[in-house]
Amino acid sequence: MDIILNGLIKAFGLILSFDRELYAIILLSLRVSVLAVVISTVLGVPVGALCALRRFPGRGIIITLLNTFMGLPPVVAGLVVYLFLSRSGPLGFLGLLYTPSAMVIAQSVIAFPIVAALTWSSVSSVRPAVRETAITLGASPVMVDWRVVCEARLGVYSAVIAGFGRTMAEVGAVLIVGGNIVGYTRVMTTAIAMETGKGSFELAIALGVILLAISFMVNALLRLAQGKGGVV
């Protein structure tokens, strides 16, 4: 208990100390996760919506793959991205390994199936009568689809929130492709893993508390946006 209590006290101390290294880690964590979620949303929402709204060859396989990859172990995602970005890999020429960009790619790979599969699920659950009503009011096929997605918007917001939660909490993939380089690719989760490995439990707990607090604040903001998006 003492370790946890001391960790909490240390967390407040760290926040109030305005330690440059700590804030650099926090900012990089946020930057990587937010970018990964934006990429996953831009790609995942249309893919999920398309699978829900249209019938096309291979749709069933795509849905099964999305559901399967929702449970993709981060270390496996990290390994695959590593192999692609390593010097001998097909994208090695880009020189992205051990950079924040590689971490964004790895986290996008992890978050994309979550956002796409949950979007598919929420858009699929919209009653067929909504589509028919839009048709009878004169909507074009594109406008009908848009209306159906609007009706599923709360589920789509939840998909994005779930994707963000996964990227913020992720450690395995960013450790593999980022390398936990201090001042460059070190993020909250990799810092926690490192401090735990060193036996600095108080610092690890303090970082964990800060990570939770940030995650809470970002989720609260997203929930706020979810509420404001209630009327479309």
């Binding site: 909504v130 028919e132 009503t133 009878t136 009011l137 074009s140 406008m143 609007c150 009706e151 209630g230």
Partner: peptide, 25 residues
């Protein structure tokens, strides 16, 4: 033309926006 069904379906928005939907289209 348009159809009003026995089991009305209103979009999850305000009454005003529901009525405006078809006009905007």
């Amino acid at each position: 033309m348009t159809l009003v069904s026995q089991w009305p379906v209103l979009f999850d928005t305000t009454l005003f926006k529901n009525v405006a939907f078809g006009l905007r289209l």
